[in-house]
């Protein structure tokens, strides 16, 4: 449910670090709470992200949630496939359901994120 090689934030995004690139998505917990995703509204390549600030929206039949950036940086790739197949976020939140790739400008921000064990403890408290 919560891969060990990812980092997580309190807004239920995950981060996969590959060098100075971060891949972002939402956690299993987040997609389960939302229910079937019907729209994902993402920024464009070249847009910048600021840690802790909203960078998009994700919407299910019943509710809408903002996406919060776990790190600061510039977007280098957007998962355009989610436009036609938003349900991918539910089906494969850590794989095909990724959202954006970012060149991080401050890798030390990663230190503030949780590892899988801390995140599981965090959501156990929230639920």
């Amino acid at each position: 449910m919560y891969p060990k090689d990812l980092k997580y934030d309190r807004e239920h995004e995950w981060v996969k670090v590959e060098g100075d690139t971060a891949i972002l998505g939402i956690s299993h917990f987040a997609q389960d709470q939302l229910g079937e995703v019907v729209y994902v509204d993402l920024p464009s390549v070249g847009d910048s992200l600021s840690a802790g600030e909203s960078f998009g929206e994700i919407e299910s039949v019943k509710s809408v949630s903002e996406l919060f950036a776990p790190v600061t940086g510039e977007i280098i790739e957007v998962n355009d496939g989610l436009g036609d197949a938003p349900e991918t976020v539910n089906e494969d939140p850590y794989g095909e359901g990724w959202m954006v790739k970012v060149t991080m400008s401050d890798a030390s921000e990663l230190d503030a994120l949780m590892d899988a064990d801390s995140y599981e403890a965090f959501i156990a408290e929230e639920a």
Partner: peptide, 9 residues
Amino acid sequence: PVQYAGIIE
């Protein structure tokens, strides 16, 4: 109950 398997399903 608001949903079981999912609203769309």
